[in-house]
Amino acid sequence: MTDDQDNTELRRPWQPVDLEAVLSGTYQRPEPTVGSRTDGRGLFYPGKSHTVVSETEGGKTWFALSAALDEMAASHHAVYIDFEDDEGSVVTRLLTLGATPDRIRNHFHYLRPDAGIGADDNAGDLTQLLGDTRPRLVVLDGITEAMGLHGLDPLKNADAAIFGRRVTKRITDTGAAVVSLDHVTKDRENRGRYALGAVHKLNGLSGAQYTLTNRTPFGIGLTGRSTINIAKDRPGQLRAHALPSSSGLHWYGDLVLESHNQDFAEVSITPPHQTDEDFRPTELMHRISEALAEYGPLAQRRILAATKGKTDSKRQALDFLILDGYVTERSPHELIKPYPRNGQAA
């Protein structure tokens, strides 16, 4: 335990906070060092709370397990508290992604609570696990179910704040990055940045919120891809390594899951494309726009089949159409507005 932690524990809640570290220049700004993109940039802040939201099959669990793999590979511990699924599903995914049984035994800790943290000695059990393993990452999967288990209403801001104090802050106080997996609202037009339920789920975060939007489906033998956008970044260190998007959020990268067969898949978090802002493959963008206008919503593979050109170039053209607001991010992709030939309106 550090001297700063000792001072925090000795200070009563309503006494002034010691500002000396900030004033003397020894205070260190939070840096996202938990989990990693392929370029080495981190995903989550140690000791902060985060949320990852998406529709069903948007890739939330794969995203969280990618970060867990990164930490386990560095011989750090990861804890997975599951309120929705079971150990078979989660651990099978880790094995599919290449984690060895020994690494999982030694560095991955799975919990499936069926009672709230206040019952019996559940809080003590969790405190002991966190103290014994000192995890860098703790995933809370299924926030709506978790709040219900604690007798709290996910639609009420006051209850969201109570859950944050009882569960989330208990974990972040140990220095772990907490990542809550949640669902978006069903209303696509008005959902904005928010998860299902109370606004405080976003407003109360001390770290970041990511929204995942699936562009190509995940499945055995397929390469699925979801866009990762930053909806909130309270410490402010993530957006510097992201690109603005037409949605008003910042594009932090893509979740890519390449399935070779049912027993082996590779997951990666790739950075956003660093391309010349003035460059656009306008002819291919126009062809894709025409195909969507003619055939209606199409999955990416059908778009590639319906238009002429090199496959990689067509994928890039589709990405630009999405980023520029001409085509929806979610698959099957829908045409929002026609893209003019040569990129110039008549």
Rank of each mutant, 00 (worst) to 15 (best):
P101S: 06
L111T: 08
V79A: 07
A123K: 15
D125H: 11
R93D: 02
L126R: 03
L97V: 05
N122E: 15
Y80M: 03
T96I: 13
T92N: 15
T96G: 13
L65G: 03
D85K: 14
R93C: 08
D102E: 15
G98F: 10
H77F: 03
V91E: 11
T127N: 12
D102R: 14
A99V: 04
D70T: 06
H77W: 01
G59H: 11
E71C: 02
N122S: 10
V91W: 01
T127F: 08
D132E: 13
D86R: 13
A123R: 15
A119W: 11
S66E: 09
F83H: 09
D85P: 00
P101F: 01
S89P: 01
L94F: 01
L69A: 06
G98E: 14
I117H: 05
P101G: 04
D70H: 12
W62E: 04
A78G: 07
Y110S: 08
T61D: 09
G98W: 08
P113I: 11
S75F: 09
Y110M: 03
A64P: 02
L94K: 01
A78P: 00
N122V: 07
G118W: 00
D120W: 11
S54P: 05
A68T: 00
H109S: 09
T56E: 07
S75C: 04
H77E: 03
F63S: 07
H107G: 12
I104W: 13
S89D: 12
M72K: 05
L69G: 04
D114E: 13
A123W: 14
T92K: 14
E87K: 11
A74I: 03
N106P: 04
L95T: 09
V91K: 15
S75R: 13
Q128P: 00
M72C: 05
V91L: 14
T100C: 07
H50G: 00
A67E: 01
N122P: 00
A64H: 04
H77K: 08
H109A: 11
V79I: 08
H107T: 07
L69P: 04
S66R: 11
I81K: 06
I104R: 12
T100K: 15
T61V: 06
S54C: 07
D82S: 06
T127E: 12
D70R: 06
T56W: 05
S75H: 12
V53I: 14
V53R: 07
D125L: 13
A67V: 02
A78R: 04
G131T: 09
H107K: 13
A67K: 01
W62Y: 13
P113D: 11
A115L: 07
S54V: 06
L94G: 00
H107E: 08
G131P: 01
D82H: 09
L69T: 05
E57I: 03
T61F: 06
G59F: 08
G131N: 13
R93W: 07
T100H: 06
F108E: 01
A119Q: 15
D120A: 14
H76Q: 09
A115Q: 15
T56K: 11
F63E: 02
L130P: 04
G124V: 09
G98I: 05
